[in-house]
Design a protein around this nucleic acid. Structure first.
Lengths: 223, 223
DNA sequence: ACTGTTTGCAAGTACCTACTTGCTTACAGA
DNA sequence: TCTGTAAGCAAGTAGGTACTTGCAAACAGT
């Protein structure tokens, strides 16, 4: 079965790439990991570059989108965001070596990474839309809304949230404080709590009653 | 002058490394950039690894610490943090290619990067101490302080601030929205504003009067 | 004017890289 | 039972890599 071997080679290529980057992932090494003869690689993929392209494309497609996505109409921001962020964080943590390598190779082989970071961009947009929905439905506190730079601040907050997840996954090993090695859900919840505090969205418990001047149901349904 | 040549080689090595990483920065390439014969490299440094070690060590030492540091006693959190973060952000942005490469090479050559990210850790600690000082001196709002997980939340907020700067510098090219390409000071100010809002530290304008229940001067001086 | 150091230059070593070729073996469908 | 396809194996090609060696030229200090 041709397909079986192809799959083995592809997963081996992903492993090798994550370990040592493009240049470090030699065809010999890939063949060895796959338990396959080196020439089989070339017979199946033509060249190392072609193999790596396909392998990275697949890997990236696998972590593409967080499911379920953030709802278009927020009903429990803390829970919704926490779940979403926890899953995103888990994906990021799981592929951190690969992502790091891909980032490092960015200038050298930009196209392969332009796709590679598509999921990050998707995530950015998704949170962005969610924040807009929060503001639209009256979840955001008045001190934030009344600020002349409200939109910019909300964008900054959103960037910080994603940045926190990103940084958490990427710089994990750098922390000397092992207390900060927190499981996804808990870490995500912390970040989301800080994020919601910055926006002035009130706590989950009192969500029904306490958030500023709007009731639970969207007060208005304009754009 | 031996020293002159050494310097040229070292800066060339940093350039080449930032462009193409360790494996990509061939001795030929370094020699070419430095305008020097290849053998001169080996005569001066012995090996490529030795050269790169020295080059990276220098580069990293150059961006080591933000000066002036954050004050031990906060007096104007927004301004102080903004200035500090802006400078940190500028350093990060300036060395982003190199940092990305170093991150990618992390697993392969860990020691060279353990030092390499020392400044990031310093920054972490510095902000951490500053936040503690903020809490000690009564800047932090009561809703945050009264939270049972106050310390964890404050740590998360601090992580997010540093993460935002880190992510800003690293993922810069990935943003398709050019509006987000904001100059350091402005970007830093936004992040700090969001950060302070999360902590419940009031705005700079009313700093003298409005921050919760404490006056400008530290109310108490306990640990 | 002599001498030691530092550089450039040309060539070479040993090894690793992607990739190729020719041949053999195994299996699957007709 | 024959045949096509996909795999393994051994060997080889062409080029790049770090690193070495020997020699000549430039210069500096005594």
């Amino acid at each position: 079965m041709s397909n079986d071997v192809r799959e083995k080679i592809i997963t081996a290529a992903m492993t090798a790439y994550a370990e040592s980057g493009f240049q470090g992932a030699t065809t010999r090494r890939v063949a060895e990991i796959a338990g396959v003869n080196e020439v089989t690689i070339f017979r199946n993929f033509g060249s190392k570059a072609a193999l790596m392209d396909e392998a990275l494309f697949r890997r990236v497609a696998a972590l593409k989108i967080v499911d379920p996505p953030l709802p278009q109409v927020p009903s429990d921001p803390l829970e919704e965001l926490t779940n979403w962020c926890a899953q995103f964080l888990r994906q990021m943590r799981g592929s951190r070596e690969l992502l790091r390598k891909a980032m490092g190779a960015a200038e050298a082989r930009f196209h392969e990474m332009a796709n590679g970071f598509e999921p990050a961009r998707c995530a950015d947009r998704e949170v962005h839309d969610y924040v807009k929905a929060l503001a639209r439905d009256g979840w955001v506190g008045s001190p934030m809304l009344s600020d002349p730079d409200a939109t910019e601040l909300m964008t900054a907050a959103q960037t910080m949230l994603i940045g926190a997840l990103w940084g958490d996954a990427m710089a994990r090993e750098l922390k000397d404080d092992p207390d900060l090695w927190v499981p996804e859900t808990r870490a995500a919840r912390r970040y989301v709590q800080v994020f919601l505090r910055a926006l002035g969205v009130s706590e989950p418990a009192h969500a029904g009653a306490a958030h500023g001047d709007a009731s639970i149901t969207p007060s208005t349904s304009l754009t």
